[in-house]
């Protein structure tokens, strides 16, 4: 993979940034998310999380199922504050 390859499309995070985080010792999904913002955008990691999990597994010589995932944060998809507030009829 090239350093310029975009891994997190919502937050424009490249493979280079994720590789650097791994090399600094940030080897959990939560840490990589906090250092690079990968997975914090509009899709909340639905696109990039699997790719990053795979790369963490490779980097740490683990099986992908041994790498813990991030805490799920509601809601599942973006909701307008007006809708949440309950006045979407006006």
């Amino acid at each position: 993979m090239k350093d310029e390859t975009i891994i997190c499309r919502c937050e424009d995070v490249t493979w280079g940034e994720i590789r650097q985080a791994l090399e600094k010792g940030y080897t959990t999904l939560d840490e990589i998310k906090r250092v690079t913002r990968a997975g914090m955008g509009r899709c909340q990691g639905k696109t990039c999380q699997k790719i990053i999990l795979g790369e963490i597994a490779k980097f740490c010589h683990k099986k992908i199922e041994e790498v813990s995932i991030s805490t799920f944060r509601p809601p599942t998809k973006p909701v307008k504050l007006g809708t949440l507030a309950g006045d979407d009829d006006d």
Partner: peptide, 29 residues
Amino acid sequence: SSWQFAREMAQKMTKVVPLLKEVSMLRQW
């Protein structure tokens, strides 16, 4: 996280800054 919080928060802030009605919440914690 609680659903009640997200709802009450949205009710409060859309009153103070009505433009926020059109802005989407991404996550809560």
